[in-house]
Amino acid sequence: MKSAVVVFPGLNRDRDMVTALEKIGGTPPVVVWHKDAELPDVDLIVIPGGFSYGDYLRAGAIAARSPMMDTIRERAEKGVHVLGVCNGFQILTEAGLLPGVLMRNASLKFVCKEVKLSVANANTPFSKEYASGQVFRCPIAHHDGNYFADAETLKSIEDNGQVVFRYAEDTNPNGSINDIAGITNAKGNVLGMMPHPENLIEPAHGGEDGRGIFAGLLGPVNTYG
């Protein structure tokens, strides 16, 4: 599967994401600057984490207005898979590709630690390597990860199975409603999540819990010797 990593000013997890995609998929992704004229034909588009444009206005708000997001929206409508992690999730909500918003953490503090995630929906391309209800570890690092949606939107995404990952075992780090850590669009080909699976994909990271998210898209999980 061909993949691309889209980079905006202020992102700082692009190299981690490129490494994860190459190690798991076996092929380096195309790295695309947000002002590039074209996005190559790929099967997976990833927007990594960081602080695009310094999180001015709101986290992800300025990046969401980039012309590149129009291209990503068009590709998503055609069925291309899109993954937004942390700031990438914020950008996807600000651009209207995912419902809801990401607000300041309930603690009003930046949080960087490991949490537990449970798989709320294992029937997506992003979660099919996990079992339904499976709990796994994943790192987080964010200040604006508090997911919120109005009652009607929340009921819709819950009823449609769009909630893919939840914070588990009382590890919700930000106050997200219904412990939501990751959601898809109604079509199921766009996923946004606050935790960083790319930072737990090999023994050097302390575990491989995050590999399944990429393996479901890129192919079988590679092993390390």
Rank of each mutant, 00 (worst) to 15 (best):
A37V: 14
R65Q: 13
V135G: 10
H34A: 09
P40E: 01
G50N: 02
P48F: 04
N222K: 14
H205T: 01
E22C: 07
N87V: 10
N146G: 06
T153F: 05
A215R: 13
D70F: 02
L218K: 14
T184A: 05
V7W: 14
D150G: 09
G210V: 06
I24Q: 12
T153G: 10
V163M: 02
V7H: 14
S132W: 06
R73P: 03
G219P: 08
Y130S: 06
L217A: 13
L11C: 05
D144S: 04
K23D: 07
F51P: 09
A122H: 09
H34D: 10
N174L: 01
V135R: 10
D36K: 00
Y53M: 09
G96A: 07
M194I: 12
E22V: 06
K109H: 10
K128S: 15
M193A: 02
L57W: 01
F148K: 15
L83M: 15
D179F: 05
V30M: 14
I140Y: 00
H196P: 08
P99S: 13
P28G: 08
M103S: 14
A76S: 14
L154I: 08
L200E: 09
D179H: 15
N189E: 04
F110M: 05
D16L: 05
M103F: 11
E169H: 09
I62S: 05
P173K: 00
S3Y: 04
P29H: 13
T19V: 07
T223H: 15
G225M: 11
V101R: 11
C138P: 04
L92K: 00
L39S: 13
A186Y: 00
G26L: 02
G79S: 02
A20Q: 07
K2V: 00
H143Q: 15
K113P: 03
Q90M: 12
F136I: 09
K113T: 15
L11R: 00
S132K: 15
I180P: 01
A186K: 10
E208N: 08
G212R: 13
P9G: 07
A149H: 08
Q90I: 12
L218H: 10
G54H: 00
A186L: 04
T153W: 03
G225R: 12
D179Q: 12
Y53K: 07
D179W: 10
A120D: 08
K78T: 14
I201L: 04
Q162W: 05
N87W: 12
G26H: 02
R166S: 08
G161L: 12
K109F: 07
V6A: 11
G25N: 04
M194E: 03
V32E: 08
N146P: 11
P67Y: 05
P40Q: 01
L83A: 12
S118H: 11
P125N: 00
P139I: 01
E38G: 11
G60M: 03
G49F: 08
V111H: 02
N146L: 08
I47Q: 08
N178T: 02
P195M: 12
G133D: 11
A4C: 09
V31Q: 05
M68C: 09
